[in-house]
Amino acid sequence: MALDMKTEPLVRVQNLKMHFPIYGGLLQRKVGDVKAVDGISFDIYEGETLGLVGESGCGKSTVGRAVLRLYDITDGAIRIDGDDIATADAGKLRSMRPLMQMIFQDPQASLNPRMTVADIIAEPLREHVKMSKIEREDRVLELMDQVGLNKEFANRYPHEFSGGQRQRIGIARALALNPKFIVCDEPIAALDVSIQAQVVNLLEELQDRLGLTYLFISHDLSMVRHIADRVAVMYLGQIAELAPRAELYEAPLHPYTQALLSAVPEPDPNIEEQVERIILTGDVPSPSNPPQGCNFCTRCPQVMEICKTVEPQFQEVQPGRFVACHLHQIAENAASEAHKSIQQGEIT
């Protein structure tokens, strides 16, 4: 998809931080923070899908929730469709809810087992829109049709549906209020391979038809390559690299992105024989005690001295390609200083 970068982004996140306090000791005093999200910035343009990938615990789901203000964020600015959401009060937030919706990972847990499908899909309508009962019923059936659910099943309960169909119910509910922006938090992770493709195709069709903008959070790098226009790779609460899809998958810049992509198994034994894997050693450090300097320095195969002391800046190193790595930092000389200050101005 050709993106006009000059247009104002639909979603603009700047220096978002989400720290969760840790309480401990005899008096249950605050003894530290889990820095789940620690200063990340990105834009999402209208009609675009931004893929957010990373391993478990990297903070990607927290980003999705924080962007919709399901948490009170620690710091940073979030603008959606021109409105500041980071500081909005409850009333204002409520009036903005129809604009932005969420699709959850586990359709079993996110649907009330005691409500019928029709009730589940109608709930946002009942909360936010004044319409007659008949209008509402019509809208529910229209939505069920849109996501490929059999309208005759409107009065059934969630447990009577398969995982893929339950996810369709969740999607219909998210679409009920004609949102512009949807956060999809691992929407296919709980589904079988043959069902995943059905749901992904549905999300793409709906995007084309309704002009939706997605933040697509997933650990499945091959599915993100399929659905996303641009991809952000998170590691330990920060974005390591953000780039258009083709560039990111063909020539990743950050050593973490390189290792992550090389680790994905290939469903072809002939390619598998030749793949050169970068095997990372060790595990992800704790987000309550991230390493000094670059947060990837403890596992990075290309680690340098500077990485252990100085935190790399998240910079635009090529047009549209952002990376936080000392290997790609723009040199600190006079010529690039000016360029850098422009970049800094843009993202801080």
């Binding site: 091959s222 998958y249 290939e266």
Partner: peptide
Amino acid sequence: TIPSVRGPRE
């Protein structure tokens, strides 16, 4: 049905 991170993208 399964997409890949390498090779051509469908």
